[in-house]
Design a binder for these strands. Structure first.
Lengths: 250, 250
DNA sequence: GTGGATTTGTTCGTATGTATT
DNA sequence: TAATACATACGAACAAATCCA
C-alpha cells in the first residue's frame, strides 16, 4: 500500500533560519557592506525568538565573515565586505586535519601561479607590467635588508601577476595557499645558510618570467614560473614528494 | 614624552577562547573524528563560563564543520571528519557577493581539470584508468536516459581524474567549483535543444582525453581537457568573457 | 570632557522536547 | 514504560563598552 511519497523532515534550528534569511539578504545585495543589521533586541522581535537564539545566529554569521558586531555599538552588527578570511580559515583547517602535505600545497601553487602567468602574458596592461617591474626592483633592494622585506616584494610580484590574470578566483586562491605555505616554511627559509644565494637565484628567475610575460609568451611564462617555484621550494619538500612536483615540469 | 611602546589590546570574547581551544585540540589530533566533546554542562564547568557562551562557541565550531550536536544526544557534540562543506560554503558566498562570473568559474575549472589530467597521465594506476573507462561507459549509456544521469557519469570521470592526480587540494577545489558551476548552468543545459548532440560530442572529447592519459601524454591530456570544457560551456558564457577563456587554449 | 541612554557580552534560572538506558 | 540526561529555547538580569547630547 503505497501512499503519497512523504519526504523526510529535517528539523531546522531556529538560529539556522535566521542565518539563512540574513545570508540571503546579504548575498542578494539587499544588504550591502557597511550597512547595519538591526540591534539584537530588534532582531528578537522581528524573528520572534529569544535573544540567545539571535546571538547564536550572529555568531555563525560572524564566523562566516558576513557581519561583525562590537560591544556597545548602538547601530547593530555591520555587514562586512567579502574577505577571503573564511576561505583561508577552512583551507588552513583542511591543511591541518587532513594533513595536506607541503608537496601538495606547493604543487597547487605551481598550478595557480603558472595559470596566472599564462593569462597575464596575454591580458596584462602596461601599468601591471610596471608593477611587476617595481616588485622585482623591490626584491633586488631587499636582498641586503633581510628575508622579510624580500618575501614582501616577492608577494607583491605574484599578486601583480594574479591581478593581471583578471580572474578573482585565481587571485584569492593564490593568496590563501601562499600564506599557508609561507606559514609552513618561512621560518626555515629565513634561517637557511644559503639564503642570500637563494634570493639572488630567485630574482634571476623572476626576471625571466617577467620577460616572457612582457613578450606575451604565455606558455613560456607558465613553464618558467613553475620552474622558479620548484627550485625555490624543492629543498623543503620531502624527498618522496618531489617526483610529483617534477611531474608538473613536463 | 614617548613612554614604552604599548600595543593595542584586542579584547577577545569568551566564546572565541573556547573555539580556539577546541579547534586546537581537533587540529592537533588530540580529538579525532567520531570522538565526543563533553556535554554543554560539563563544558561550562571546564571553561567556567555560562551555558550561552558555551553554546555560541559550539555554533561557531559547527559552522566550521568541526563538530555536530544533536538534541538529546547524551554523549555530547561529535567531532566530525573534515568535509569541504565549509570550504564550499565560503566559496559559494564569494561567488555570490563578489559576483564571480561564470567565465571566471569555468576558467578556473579549466585550470584545475587540465592540471589534474597532466598529473593523472603520469601518476594514474591501472585501477583508476578502469574507473575512467567505466565513467565514460556510463556517459554513453546515459545519453538515452537523460541529462541527470549523464551529468553524474561526467562527474564520476572528472573525480576519477582528480583522484589520480594524488593532490587532495585539486580534488576538493575541483569538486567545489564544479558544483557551483553546475548550479549556475545545469538548468540551461538540461533544457537545451541540442542537448543530445552536446552529450555525444562531450563523450568523444572525453575519450580523446582518456586516450592521452592512458598513453601517459600529460601535456596533450591537459590541452584536450581544456578544449573539452571550453566547447562544453562556451555557449553559456557571455560573449565578452570568451576571449579570456580562449587565452587558456594557447 | 561628562553623563546618561543604549547596546553588546555574559550570567543564571527555567521550561520543553528528545534520545538513550 | 519510566527514568535520566541531554540539547533547544526562553526571559530576566548585570557589567562593560559605545555613542550622543
Amino acid at each position: 500500500m503505497s501512499g503519497p511519497r512523504f519526504e523526510p523532515v529535517r528539523t531546522v534550528r531556529a538560529y539556522e533560519r535566521i542565518v539563512e534569511q540574513v545570508e540571503e539578504a546579504i548575498e542578494s545585495g539587499a544588504l550591502c557592506p557597511g550597512e547595519r543589521l538591526p540591534s539584537e533586541r530588534d532582531l528578537m522581535v522581528q524573528f520572534s525568538v529569544s535573544r540567545s537564539t539571535v546571538r547564536e545566529a550572529l555568531r555563525v554569521l560572524q564566523a562566516r565573515g558576513l557581519v561583525r558586531s562590537r560591544p556597545g555599538d548602538p547601530h547593530g552588527a555591520e555587514v562586512q565586505p567579502f574577505s577571503p578570511a573564511a576561505l583561508h580559515k577552512s583551507m588552513t583547517t583542511l591543511a591541518r586535519v587532513d594533513e595536506l602535505s607541503l608537496g601538495e600545497l606547493v604543487q597547487f601553487r605551481m598550478v595557480l601561479d603558472a595559470s596566472a602567468n599564462l593569462l597575464a602574458a596575454r591580458l596584462r596592461t602596461d601599468e601591471q607590467l610596471a608593477e611587476m617591474d617595481a616588485a622585482i626592483a623591490g626584491m633586488r633592494a631587499a636582498v641586503e635588508v633581510g628575508y622579510d622585506a624580500f618575501s614582501a616584494a616577492d608577494i607583491a610580484f605574484h599578486d601583480a601577476v594574479a591581478r593581471a590574470s583578471r580572474n578573482k578566483l585565481i587571485q584569492i586562491c593564490t593568496d590563501v595557499v601562499r600564506s599557508i605555505v609561507l606559514g609552513l616554511v618561512s621560518g626555515k627559509i629565513a634561517a637557511a645558510a644559503d639564503r642570500e644565494a637563494l634570493m639572488r637565484q630567485s630574482i634571476a628567475h623572476h626576471e625571466e618570467v617577467l620577460a616572457a610575460v612582457r613578450a606575451g609568451d604565455g606558455p613560456l611564462a607558465a613553464r618558467l614560473s613553475r620552474q622558479t617555484m620548484y627550485d625555490y621550494y624543492l629543498g623543503y619538500v620531502p624527498v618522496d614528494e618531489r617526483p610529483a612536483l617534477r611531474a608538473l615540469l613536463e
